[in-house]
Design a protein around this nucleic acid. Sequence first.
DNA 1: TACAAAAAGGCAACATTGTTGCAAAATGTG
DNA 2: CACATTTTGCAACAATGTTGCCTTTTTGTA
Lengths: 143, 143
Amino acid sequence: MALEIKDILKKNKLSVTGSREKILSLFLNHEGALSHGDIEKKAGEKFDRVTVYRTLQTFLEKGIIHAIPTADNSIRYALCKDDCTEGHHHDHHIHFLCMHCHNTYCLDDIVTPEIKLPDGYVADQIDVLVEGVCKNCKASVTK
Amino acid sequence: MALEIKDILKKNKLSVTGSREKILSLFLNHEGALSHGDIEKKAGEKFDRVTVYRTLQTFLEKGIIHAIPTADNSIRYALCKDDCTEGHHHDHHIHFLCMHCHNTYCLDDIVTPEIKLPDGYVADQIDVLVEGVCKNCKASVTK
DNA sequence: TACAAAAAGGCAACATTGTTGCAAAATGTG
DNA sequence: CACATTTTGCAACAATGTTGCCTTTTTGTA
Ligand SMILES: [Mn+2]
Ligand SMILES: [Mn+2]
Ligand SMILES: [Zn+2]
Ligand SMILES: [Zn+2]
């Protein structure tokens, strides 16, 4: 596992540093997306806030993670599964926000649908956000 | 027009005040969504920042406006066209973010598609964000 | 219209979040 | 190990969002 992390960094031509390894491991060991705040808390007092910002920025640019829009001013980030490269993502899955556990999940098997736009509009990227109750919470809340 | 604004406020059991009239008129006279920052700038030095926050919050709760998620940590707001009520919105349209003019449009005629979720997931609301080039920009950028 | 109660606004103080420049430390390469 | 390059931590700052409290405005009613 520790090896896998270093490999991901090297594959992306990034030097292997403590903060990058730590933050990447957080993503690898957490189902669901993480916000900047989540990472800051989970990484503990080990790293500076600025380092977290810069690391996320770097991971984004390299296509290691992708940003997930939300309506509450708190971007979430998640690992890219496909072969995303610098500046070009191939994430055509939808995102699910659980209102109960507040986790954000990448539903990698659900492909974003085609959208027929009005004349003149050209689509470049489509994000689908579904809000509801996730599988786990549904099971635990069963009446 | 000035009458229409007062009517909207009264219909929602809100007292008619200068800031509410002003902010509501900004929405009525602007195609596309507005962020908190946009409103602060457009409203000029006339109102306190806190008043803008509180007014948007009130409009949201009353279902006068709805929030549009983005991937850049800046919520946009737009008028609700349908009969949205306190706590319950009926916005099933998609949102278009123009990468050129940076406007956000409600495409009221495009209905959000059905999404088939994995077993166990229950959807409550679906947001579709399309990023690309809008009608106006497409026309002006034609080569 | 005058009045009292209720609601909203302005202000100040504060908290949180994000950005920048720079010097110190760590990393990769030979 | 030495050196050039990259990354980090820190400090200072900017931007954004929140709260409490007092004043002003609005509203319903007499
Ligand atoms: Mn995802
Ligand atoms: Mn809309
Ligand atoms: Zn859940
Ligand atoms: Zn445009």
